[in-house]
Computed example of a mutant assay.
Amino acid sequence: MAKRKDARVTIILECTSCIRNGLKKVSTGISRYITQKNRHNTPNGLELKKFCPYCSKHTIHGEIEK
C-alpha cells in the first residue's frame, strides 16, 4: 500500500533565546516542545510563545528541522 501525504506533520519547537544568549544557569539544555501543524495552512516555519524553564520566562520558540 502507498503512504498518503497527510496535511498534519509533527514538528519540534526550540527556544530561540537559549540559542542566542547561551545558558547562564547551572542546568544545561535547550527547551523543546513537540507539536503538530497543518502544512497546507502554515507552509512557513511556525513560531509560538512558550515557557522556557532554562530562561525562567516566556520566550519565542521556533520550528527546527528534524
Rank of each mutant, 00 (worst) to 15 (best):
M1E: 12
A2W: 08
A2C: 00
K3N: 11
R4Q: 09
R4W: 06
D6M: 15
D6F: 14
A7N: 08
A7K: 15
A7G: 06
R8F: 15
R8M: 15
R8T: 03
V9E: 15
V9Q: 09
V9G: 02
T10K: 08
T10D: 06
T10A: 07
T10L: 05
I11E: 05
I11K: 05
I11F: 03
I11W: 01
I11S: 00
I11A: 00
I12A: 00
I12S: 02
I12Y: 08
I12Q: 07
L13E: 00
L13H: 03
E14G: 08
C15K: 03
C15W: 07
C15M: 09
C15V: 14
T16R: 05
T16F: 07
T16E: 15
S17N: 04
S17L: 11
S17C: 06
C18S: 06
I19D: 04
I19L: 14
R20Y: 10
R20N: 09
R20L: 13
R20V: 15
N21K: 14
N21L: 07
N21A: 09
N21I: 06
N21S: 06
N21D: 14
G22D: 01
G22I: 01
G22H: 04
L23S: 08
L23Y: 03
L23N: 14
L23G: 14
L23Q: 13
L23V: 08
K24C: 04
K24L: 13
K24F: 05
K25I: 11
K25E: 06
V26I: 10
V26S: 08
V26H: 11
V26P: 10
V26Y: 15
S27Y: 15
S27F: 12
G29V: 13
G29N: 10
G29W: 13
G29C: 02
I30P: 04
I30C: 14
I30K: 13
S31Y: 08
R32G: 04
Y33D: 01
Y33L: 04
I34L: 09
I34Q: 08
I34T: 06
T35K: 00
T35W: 02
Q36N: 05
K37N: 03
K37R: 02
K37M: 00
N38Q: 03
N38I: 07
N38P: 00
R39M: 14
R39L: 11
R39E: 11
N41L: 15
N41F: 10
T42D: 10
T42H: 12
T42F: 09
P43F: 07
N44K: 14
N44H: 14
G45H: 14
G45P: 10
L46W: 01
L46I: 09
L46E: 01
L46Y: 02
E47H: 09
E47C: 07
E47R: 15
L48M: 05
L48H: 04
L48Q: 05
K49D: 02
F51Y: 15
F51K: 01
F51T: 03
F51P: 02
C52T: 04
C52Y: 07
P53E: 12
P53Y: 11
Y54P: 01
Y54A: 02
C55V: 05
C55K: 09
C55W: 06
S56V: 15
S56M: 12
K57Q: 11
H58S: 08
H58R: 08
H58M: 03
T59D: 03
T59R: 12
T59Y: 10
I60T: 08
I60E: 05
H61Q: 01
G62P: 01
G62M: 14
E63G: 07
I64D: 01
I64A: 07
I64G: 03
I64M: 12
E65G: 09
E65F: 13
E65K: 15
